[in-house]
Design a protein around this nucleic acid. Sequence first.
DNA 1: AACGCTATTCTAAACGTTTCGATACTGTCA
DNA 2: TGACAGTATCGAAACGTTTAGAATAGCGTT
Lengths: 339, 339
Amino acid sequence: MLHVAEAARVSVATVSALINGTATVSPELSQRIEQAIRDIGYKRNAIARSLKMGTTRTIGLTVPHITNPFFTDVVSVIQQAFDRAGYAVMLCCTDEDLNTQDDQIRLLLDRMVDGLIVARVGDGAILKGIVDDANVPVVLLDRICEGVDTDAVVLDNQRAVFDAITYLINLGHRRIGYITGTSDISPMHDRMTGYSEALRAAGLPVAEDLVRSGNFHEIDGYNATMQLLSLHNRPSAIFSANNPMVIGTMKAIRDIGLSCPEDISVACFDDFPWSDVFQPQLTTVAQPVQAIGEQAANLLLDRLAGNRDAPPRKLVLKGRLMIRNSCRPLGAIAQSVSA
Amino acid sequence: MLHVAEAARVSVATVSALINGTATVSPELSQRIEQAIRDIGYKRNAIARSLKMGTTRTIGLTVPHITNPFFTDVVSVIQQAFDRAGYAVMLCCTDEDLNTQDDQIRLLLDRMVDGLIVARVGDGAILKGIVDDANVPVVLLDRICEGVDTDAVVLDNQRAVFDAITYLINLGHRRIGYITGTSDISPMHDRMTGYSEALRAAGLPVAEDLVRSGNFHEIDGYNATMQLLSLHNRPSAIFSANNPMVIGTMKAIRDIGLSCPEDISVACFDDFPWSDVFQPQLTTVAQPVQAIGEQAANLLLDRLAGNRDAPPRKLVLKGRLMIRNSCRPLGAIAQSVSA
DNA sequence: AACGCTATTCTAAACGTTTCGATACTGTCA
DNA sequence: TGACAGTATCGAAACGTTTAGAATAGCGTT
């Protein structure tokens, strides 16, 4: 900017005024300055600007795994929303690791991001500390956090799973295996509650041997399913509370020589774009990913626009049960077996 | 830092020296300073540091679509690699749009990113201009660019498709439909060449009516497939040069009342993690996503480490044909039809 | 006691912006 | 003609660091 000012024989203050339109600049000088900008190929340095202004027009986004299609979709929507609003997005993947998440959030705050969208990992204590210190608005995504009082957008996980399990029960299933992620995050807890509530509502027992947990990866789903299928009295249906794990479930079913839905019914949380073309067509609980991403972006953009003091807002969206052909009425199975 | 210096009764220079280890500081002052840092909860401001140092320890990454599993995986690997190296990643999705890409790259450069990894869109002219101006190292990903002389990591697309098409020919297919993305990017061009070369090598004609193009989305694959299937003399196999589009292909096949592989064989570029559990199990060309991401990260990290003047390096990796059950020998189909 | 050496610490100038208050100019009106 | 208001421009400080070079202190030598 100094060079531009010199070339146009004006002060840097005038150049700044013209660029930002913060004061009127005479046509004559405007022209000289614009010419100089073109000649020199001047680009405003956003870093220097950020330092002075105290704002970076950049937000931080952390998710556990970007390869999980749910997060991929949400990240994509959020990225687009902030792109439109002229913000850049710094993306971090915590890989479900608490320390990584910690480090990354600190890294983002050091870089003076203007806001944070966090699909948190682990318990919220440390996150709470960081968020309280940092003076930036934070939106919690997918996973809320006891004691961290801030904007959030989540699914009504309990209800969604309740509906899915009830659907299985209505098909005649009585022993329903359940594969969950680590239970220290709210969705896993709420989904588990949905599972037990549905059983309880139908007067069925919650059998401990039917519940397995893993760490969100395909291999965890595989191992959990292997255990369920080798049970003395194996379940007739399996619900996977997370979608990378259901791939593992399907592999385990295949490897053990069974097939879905003939021998075992399967349903899971989170939809896939290909769910209704490949066989078996998985029955899933679809999250409104578009809405989740947009709402999260809107909440944060609203805070960034200056609405700092409004009380925390918590948006709870509804899941939708997508019924396809991966779950069979139990009567039909009995028939085909006895035939 | 000023407050810390005051609290510890030293100068800011000494605080800086201690924090960065750039000069020896007596144990006594060190202790006072560390205490003050803790008391105040001081965090170094990375923006001010960037301004002074001329480096942000942040890189920019732009891809066409993050929801395309290929890019999702590559982004994930790259993110991890830079995270390990202490860099932040700014992610942009260009949505296959030239202007968006332009704006985003400028945005990233304004923010003084230290380097850029670009899966480019459209023709390279503008990109070339930007890259030449900007004084940062650039690595091209997946798609190279005539005239832009910089590091790149790409697949041997021609060979990969040649092998896949040859496989189909060996199964007895003679009319093989081909669905491509827009041909202004190198992989689409090279894949198309692989297709024609394979046909030519087998002495088969390249029929224009068998080649359709779309804009990388599922819907484009759907439309292209609909056209191919309503051809008077429809193909016995379809190869989709891109993986979101193959979902559209499968939907079209289903909607038109055919089935794969019984009525029509399908293969595509890019693998899915679930390819070998759901039916039909797609035959695909798998890219070594892990290697692609790592190599791209390494190339850039190497430049960032100071190796600026080495000549541009172009890494060409090999694809791998994953043969599953979505393609049938044509003889078998003939038999079952005549039976 | 004066000297030089080393180890430690500090002063002050950058980095590239924004912005407040000051200044200079122009024209209007009493 | 002089005071005044309004407009256009500028000088300089500030944002929070890093760093070159100057200053100081401590200490062994001669």
